[in-house]
């Protein structure tokens, strides 16, 4: 009988510690969640500034359904530039991790630029150096997108596919002939 009592006390203590731990973490989450969301929003705003060169006016995102990667569309307006431009949020993953990015197009559906929001790929630094940075600095960006041989080919292929899909969606939303 003494044994049973001991087991019960042990189990209760462990349960209490776990409950207390859950409560503490829950409280911390409540405190920090708002701030983390705000950080993410700032990050996205920074991404738009990176693509369009200056701080653009960005609408709230609208969801897109039924696509592999592209899941949100933003409309972007820039002072002094005519026409509405579209940008897309795309999330994709392969066996090395996740990539989240913004893909921007100008009003004629030409590829304008991209900004990586999150890159958890194992070879993130190789991918950055040999693929993403080259696209960002290139004159002819569309050509560089196709050149995926960079030492992190899977990540680069994923990014290429994401951009291609966003391009198709842009053409559907904003038909220009």
């Amino acid at each position: 009988m003494a044994n049973t009592k001991r087991y019960v006390i042990t189990a209760i203590t462990l349960g209490l510690i776990c409950a207390a731990s859950g409560a503490l973490i829950g409280v911390t989450n409540a405190i920090t969640a708002k701030r983390i969301d705000q950080n993410e929003k700032d990050n996205i705003q920074r991404g738009f500034a990176e693509i369009y060169g200056q701080n653009p006016v960005v609408s709230d995102p609208k969801p897109i359904e039924g696509k592999d990667y592209t899941n949100q569309v933003y409309t972007v307006e820039i002072e002094g530039v005519e026409g509405v431009q579209y940008a897309f949020r795309a999330d994709g993953s392969n066996m090395y991790g996740k990539i989240s990015m913004l893909v921007g197009f100008d009003s004629l559906n030409q590829f304008k630029g991209m900004s990586i929001i999150a890159n958890t790929q194992t070879y993130a630094s190789t991918l950055n150096q040999n693929y993403i940075d080259k696209i960002k600095t290139a004159e002819n960006k569309s050509e560089k997108i196709e050149d995926v041989k960079c030492g992190a080919t899977y990540g680069a292929t994923l990014i290429r596919d994401m951009i291609h899909e966003a391009q198709e969606v842009a053409k559907q939303i904003n038909p220009k002939e």
Partner: peptide, 13 residues
Amino acid sequence: TDTGLRFIDALAN
């Protein structure tokens, strides 16, 4: 789980 791998990729990892 942080990098959001599929189960088969997680297993391979």
